[in-house]
């Protein structure tokens, strides 16, 4: 079947918009959740400023469990939860909920790694200055890790672009969905190439901007 390119560009534009919305909103929400969880995973571990092993162990286990479920299964498994949150289990909004549940723990791990890279001596210096735990987190740890956090978030964003392709399974739309529906299932190579090229451009753009921002912040 031949595609009518005149009207098809409109579909592609729509799909691009859907992808950007899905990735954008889920990135925002999962970044908040991820940074929060990541910070807690760092400061509650043994010997850190707010050591609390029960909290650390429970969170650590939850993050591991969520991280080990394949996205497509997670998306279906949490349909009741999705319906509870956004009132529907199909469409773009319905895809955003599982994307957040998927990316949140992922970002938490990335944030955790970024924060653990900071020399423990700096935390010690903050304590010696009389910083409160709150100040240590927001005035010392996060600013020190900022440029590496940006790189982590870039990685997470690209992961979200990939995961959002599977949102087609719940009628979420987006570029990935288009590529699968037209290109893969209908064997329309042209459409597939166009959408895949657009995805490549998107990912390249994200990675390059992430690199630039991170380098600026590192100020070397």
């Amino acid at each position: 079947m031949q595609v009518d390119w005149g009207t098809f560009w409109v579909d592609i534009l729509d799909a691009t918009g859907d992808t950007l919305i899905m990735v954008g909103i889920s990135l925002l929400a999962s970044a908040v959740i991820g940074v929060l969880l990541g910070v807690i995973l760092v400061v509650t571990r043994k010997g850190h400023i707010l050591e609390n092993l029960p909290v650390f162990n429970v969170l650590n286990a939850i993050v591991n469990v969520l991280r080990s479920i394949p996205f497509i299964i997670l998306m279906v498994a949490i349909i009741p939860f999705t319906r509870l949150v956004v009132g529907t289990s199909i469409g773009t909004a319905a895809a955003i909920v599982p994307l957040i549940v998927y990316a949140g723990p992922y970002i938490a791990r990335l944030v955790e790694n970024s924060l653990l890279e900071i020399d423990p001596g700096i935390v010690e210096a903050a304590e010696a200055m009389g910083a409160t735990p709150w100040q240590t987190i927001f005035r010392i740890l996060l600013p020190e890790a900022f440029s590496s956090l940006i790189l982590s978030l870039t990685t997470a964003t690209i992961g979200l672009v990939g995961a959002s392709a599977m949102a087609g399974a719940v009628g979420g739309g987006g570029l990935g969905d288009l590529a699968i529906a037209y290109g893969y299932q209908r064997f329309d190579t042209d459409v597939m190439i166009v959408t895949v090229v657009l995805l490549i451009v998107l990912v390249q753009g994200l990675q390059s901007s992430g690199n630039v921002i991170s380098r600026r912040l590192r100020r070397r």
Partner: peptide, 14 residues
């Protein structure tokens, strides 16, 4: 009580 360190422990981003 001020404190200084062998490896300085300065904030690299500041």
């Amino acid at each position: 009580i001020g404190m200084i360190f062998q490896h300085f422990n300065l904030l690299n981003a500041k």
